[in-house]
């Protein structure tokens, strides 16, 4: 097995995760991420299991909620924790692209 990821590979996962990586950190991540990936790669050696896949809450079944309204937040509470807001809106730098 390789002992480190390529720079491009690290930058790709950093992009998926939206985490900026400085040039001087790259090398460490190349090694550390590869160590973790080599470990998870061991799963390929696991054989003989049943293919059925179960999500988290194994034997539980979703209980549905009645369609009845509950308490809501005051808009003030919503914006209080937000780093940037204008009026009752939470604000972010302008997003160009999709309008929805």
């Amino acid at each position: 097995m390789e002992d480190k990821l390529t720079k491009e590979e690290v930058l790709h996962v950093a992009q998926l995760a939206r985490i900026n990586i400085d040039e001087d950190e790259l090398e460490t991540y190349q090694i550390e991420l590869k160590k973790l990936l080599n470990e998870v790669e061991k799963i390929s050696a696991v054989k003989g299991y049943d293919d059925e896949k179960l999500i988290a809450s194994w034997d539980r079944k979703t209980e549905l909620r009645e369609d009845i309204a509950g308490e809501m937040l005051d808009p003030k509470e919503v914006i209080n924790n937000a780093p940037r807001h204008s009026g009752n809106y939470i604000e972010v730098p302008v997003v160009i692209g999709d309008e929805s």
């Binding site: 909620r65 369609d67 009845i68 309204a69 509950g70 308490e71 809501m72 937040l73 005051d74 808009p75 919503v78 914006i79 009026g87 009752n88 809106y89 939470i90």
Partner: peptide
């Protein structure tokens, strides 16, 4: 109400007044 919470599913209300 909303799909994953019990806040009101409404339109045309004051911004951020229908949330939890």
């Amino acid at each position: 109400t909303k799909i994953f919470s019990n806040s009101i599913n409404g339109y045309g209300q004051m911004a951020n007044s229908l949330t939890n």
